[in-house]
Amino acid sequence: MTEEITLLAQLQNPTTKEVGFRNLIQAYKERMYWHIRKIVISHDDADDVLQNTFIKIFKNIDNFKGDSKLYSWMYRIATNEAITFINKKAKEQHQDVSDYKHHLISNLNSDLWFSGDEIQYILQQAIATLPEKQQLVFNMKYFDDLKYHEISDILSTSVGALKASYFHAVKKIEQFIKTYN
């Protein structure tokens, strides 16, 4: 929290904005990347979205009111950027977004930047069958170890609703793995 306050002070002062931004990237780049990567799947796309996310953060940092954590605010921008990106890609391919996601997953085995074995491939297929919100909640809770109240800040959803989403997500994934493995 202290780190966030220092960063924010640097970012909102024009003379230290660039230094502050460098520090912000250093602190959050990996977490932001992995969050985006799990949504857009491909490394190259994740790289594009990550860069756009940081640029958006840089341009809009003066508008950050501080009514939520900086971390949550950035996560929200990253999530929106990634979802917008994948919707746009699906539209370009004249596909429904869930079909497009399935298409991405089916190409994973030939992806240079995927080293998963069969079970990890099945897990990605299982995640792709979930509704968008459940996908996000599962990835953020299971892989990123975020707390419900943090996810609640990011996705603007109540903790109760998130718990229910997570419950349904893990149940479906368990069932999918049992069926296909």
Binding site: I25, Y33, F114, D117, L123, F143, V170
Partner: peptide
């Protein structure tokens, strides 16, 4: 939920198989 998570953990151990190019994060800066 915990029961299902235990099952998933046992199967995949929180690894998703995604990898990144060497020095990607250094270059990103």
């Amino acid at each position: 939920t915990k029961h299902s998570i235990d099952f998933i953990n046992k199967k995949i151990n929180k690894k998703n198989g995604f990898i990144i190019p060497d020095n990607y994060f250094d270059k990103l800066d």
